[in-house]
Computed example of a mutant assay.
Amino acid sequence: MTKFLAFTAAALLATSAAAFADGHGHGHGDPKKGEKEFNRCKACHMIVDDAGNAIVKGGKTGPNLYGVVGRPVASVEGFKYGDGILAVGETGMVWEPELLVEYAMDPTKFIDTHGGSGRSKMTFKIKDASNIVAFLASVAPEAAADEATDEAPAEGTATE
């Protein structure tokens, strides 16, 4: 009976977490829609790859968002961040999709609840940034994906 209750509680928790994520836009989004929605962001942000190729030409008021998903908070070299987001970055936080969505919804609240204090330099809030975050993830460096598949070949397989 105890195993059944534990299984049932775990199943309910997993189902609730999935329902919350789906209902709040965390972790799910449409990159095609996000590309269009990013137009609101490019007044301040650009997406330029490591080789200097512009994926999306944009402003320089905000940091370059190339590779932002999975990058440590406030870590673009040479960018002048505000004190609040720098304090969040000092916690070691990494921009996971759900955190980017949370930040875009209320940047100042995000800073205040994640180790910093004070206003964000981001001038507006985005009601649901899940599509934009999905777009940003879709134009991320391929190195992260390559690392995930760069395991040693199985025994007995040929290598190049």
Rank of each mutant, 00 (worst) to 15 (best):
K3R: 04
K3H: 02
F4W: 00
L5D: 02
A6N: 01
A6I: 14
A6S: 07
F7D: 11
T8N: 06
A9P: 00
A10C: 06
A10K: 04
L13I: 15
A14H: 01
S16F: 06
A17L: 13
A17T: 12
A19C: 01
A19S: 12
F20C: 07
F20Q: 11
G23L: 05
G27R: 00
H28E: 02
G29W: 01
G29Y: 02
D30N: 14
D30P: 00
P31G: 04
P31S: 08
G34S: 04
G34C: 05
G34H: 06
E35W: 00
R40Q: 15
K42Q: 15
A43W: 10
A43E: 15
H45S: 10
H45I: 04
H45L: 03
M46G: 11
V48A: 12
D49H: 03
D50Q: 08
D50L: 10
N53Q: 14
A54E: 15
I55M: 06
I55Y: 05
V56D: 02
V56W: 02
K57Q: 10
T61Q: 12
G62S: 05
P63I: 11
P63V: 13
N64A: 09
Y66V: 01
V68D: 08
V68C: 06
V68M: 03
V69N: 08
V69S: 03
R71N: 10
V73K: 01
S75F: 00
S75M: 02
V76E: 14
E77D: 15
E77S: 14
F79V: 04
K80D: 13
Y81F: 05
Y81T: 09
Y81W: 03
G82Q: 12
G82W: 00
D83P: 12
G84M: 01
G84D: 05
I85M: 06
L86D: 01
L86T: 14
A87C: 03
G89W: 00
T91F: 05
T91S: 10
M93G: 09
V94F: 07
V94D: 10
V94C: 07
W95F: 13
E96D: 07
E96T: 12
P97K: 03
L100R: 04
V101M: 06
E102N: 10
E102T: 12
Y103T: 07
A104T: 03
A104Y: 08
A104D: 08
A104P: 07
A104C: 10
M105F: 07
M105Q: 14
D106L: 08
P107G: 13
T108Q: 09
T108R: 07
K109S: 14
I111E: 09
T113I: 09
H114T: 04
G118Y: 02
M122L: 13
M122G: 13
M122Q: 13
K127P: 08
D128A: 10
A129I: 01
N131D: 15
N131T: 02
I132T: 08
V133W: 03
V133T: 05
A134K: 01
A134V: 06
F135A: 03
A137R: 05
S138Q: 08
V139G: 09
A140I: 01
A140T: 11
P141M: 00
P141G: 15
E142D: 15
E142Q: 13
A143M: 11
A144D: 14
A145E: 14
A145L: 11
D146T: 12
A148E: 12
T149G: 10
T149K: 08
D150I: 02
E151P: 00
A152W: 07
P153W: 02
A154T: 05
E155P: 02
G156I: 11
G156D: 11
T157H: 09
A158Q: 08
A158W: 01
